[in-house]
Design a protein around this nucleic acid. Structure first.
Lengths: 242, 242
DNA sequence: CGTCGTGTTGAACCTAGTCAATTTCCGTGG
DNA sequence: CCACGGAAATTGACTAGGTTCAACACGACG
């Protein structure tokens, strides 16, 4: 089988097999892709978007801003993730989505997507699945934030990120490219920048990871996963009739 | 209009208007209800359920257990919430659902639900919406856990709980019945029991709430919401074509 | 009347946050 | 090739928010 290039098809094929007809239907969707620079807003809280969007390249983040200027990232997205299927049904965005790195995003008009899901039940379910997986990730983040110490939390995040990227062939052996600053990492983990710095150093000293210049190398995945209590099942990285 | 008694219909009517035909389809679903005692497991991590379930009365909680015996509650559910639509598409549960109080749960076979969503696009979307609202709540929890001090977090939780219950007429003026122990509250908020105790006292001293014997009374919602940075929009408590 | 679960309190401890300074890295222009 | 400036990483000292441990009070229940 030739490597599929349509990002939508690749996104959904992660979770189940698609028929030729379904592929055709997906290919027929009017995608318009756009390049965005790091930190550009993709969608703003309060918006009522007319398009949904799929991340084709780079990273995107969901963010919520607090009154006092603090920021929390509630999920991070890798190529192949839908970063906004919510607005198709919820209509009003309750959070922001920003370009976490320079990235490429494909926009799909809600109208076309609505027609697609009304006509293709199976595709509709698979789109639903993508939002359910996002929710599973959110739950894992809640547990890390609520009950794990900083070092385990960071370890868990690295395991998750690595596993998600690897699931799409975006790893490079046991390292990944992830150009987040420590400030941004703090917004992901709910920690201060200083503490992020010290926690990374702790993982380094334990010989579990290297992290330099936007390249994260996992030196001992098993030990890292063990310390983090990481079980990849929640990522649902398998094909199954749905 | 007569008060609707079918819990499924009430659940979906929160988000959009239903046609008579849709109501009939929902009424035709084979519900089997069951009474559960507090702390009984409704679904266990790793299960591959054959039924989805809807909470009819009482509270239910999603929980994740850590290696060291710690526990985190990742979402709380009130009557009218689906507590397991996930397994319909994700197949394998990545977390537990337990009876948070004595409660009544309606089970619906996956087969019947699948037929329903294949036949009724609009109902399918509304079911999807319920999972999206859950995800929105998860995001709010992440932000509270990551970036808010304990007192604001607790205030936010109370605002959320009150608003969700009020949306279903389950409030009693400005108080609600919520029989959680402080240990359980700790599992919700990601705090130690002792700190929960002290934080509740802080809110009491500020004149914002009373909390005694399972009854939470909000003495000044505006001030409470203000301190918590609570904006109810994410709960999507309105009817809108979806 | 004893026991257990829950709420409450105090004190010691520790993880993580804050503030401020310093160093490293990197891109730019000369 | 080097000097400069700004962003990011790192470090130290101090503080604060939150945890832990232990004790005690209270009420429900057998």
């Amino acid at each position: 089988m030739a490597e599929e290039v349509n990002p939508l098809i690749r996104a959904l094929e992660q979770y189940d097999v698609l028929s030729d007809e379904e592929r055709d239907a997906l290919r027929a969707l009017p995608l318009r892709t756009r390049l965005l620079q790091k930190n550009e807003e993709i969608i703003r809280e309060g918006d009522r978007p007319t398009h949904s969007c799929l991340l084709v390249a780079g990273f995107a983040a969901r963010t919520q801003n607090l009154e006092d200027g603090k920021r929390q990232i509630t999920n991070l997205h890798a190529p192949g993730d839908f970063v906004d299927l919510h607005s198709l049904l919820l209509k009003r965005m309750d959070h922001n989505v920003i370009a976490f790195s320079d990235c490429e995003v494909a926009f799909i008009p809600h109208g076309a997507l609505r027609e697609l899901i009304d006509r293709h039940n199976h595709l509709s379910r698979l789109l639903w699945v993508t939002t359910l997986v996002d929710a599973a990730i959110d739950r894992a983040w809640i547990t890390c934030l609520g009950r794990r110490p900083a070092i385990d939390h960071l370890a868990h995040f690295i395991c998750e990120l690595f596993t998600r990227l690897k699931g799409r062939g975006l790893n490079d052996g046991n390292s990944i490219l992830f150009g987040a600053t420590q400030v941004e990492l703090g917004d992901i983990l709910g920690m201060s920048t200083v503490h992020v710095n010290r926690t990374i150093q702790d993982l380094r000293k334990l010989g579990l990871i290297d992290w330099e210049a936007g390249r994260v190398t996992i030196r001992d995945f098993d030990r890292l996963a063990d310390r983090a209590g990481f079980d990849p099942a929640y990522l649902n990285q398998w094909v199954e009739p749905r």
